[in-house]
């Protein structure tokens, strides 16, 4: 029984080692090289999606702006100017 146990432990260790080797190989495959900072930033920018919420908020804001313009309402200006009035 004992040798069998040892064998299974060795087998387990081998499997772990193989998994680690595969993981390392995978990591090396996934590693990317960039020639410069701007190239890295360019890659990062391409991977960074713009949140869809911005377009939705902007559409609502520009609608309000256009409605105010059409109604002849003047631009209220920044809050601090309105506060000082």
């Amino acid at each position: 029984m004992k040798p069998e146990r040892k064998l299974s432990f060795r087998q387990q260790t081998n499997e772990e080692q193989q998994a680690r080797v595969a993981e390392t190989a995978n990591t090396v495959e996934n590693a990317k090289e960039f020639n410069s900072a701007e190239e890295l930033l360019r890659y990062d920018a391409a991977q960074t999606p713009v949140p869809a919420a911005i377009a939705q908020r902007l559409a609502a804001s520009t609608q309000v702006e256009s409605a105010n313009k059409n109604a002849g309402k003047p631009d209220p200006g920044p809050w601090w100017k309105r506060f000082l009035r």
């Binding site: 996934n30 990317k32 960039f34 020639n35 991977q47």
Partner: peptide
Amino acid sequence: TDSPLRALETKELGQRI
């Protein structure tokens, strides 16, 4: 600056940058 910048393609790349 002539040696390449190496990075793993992970979600942590953005945090590292």
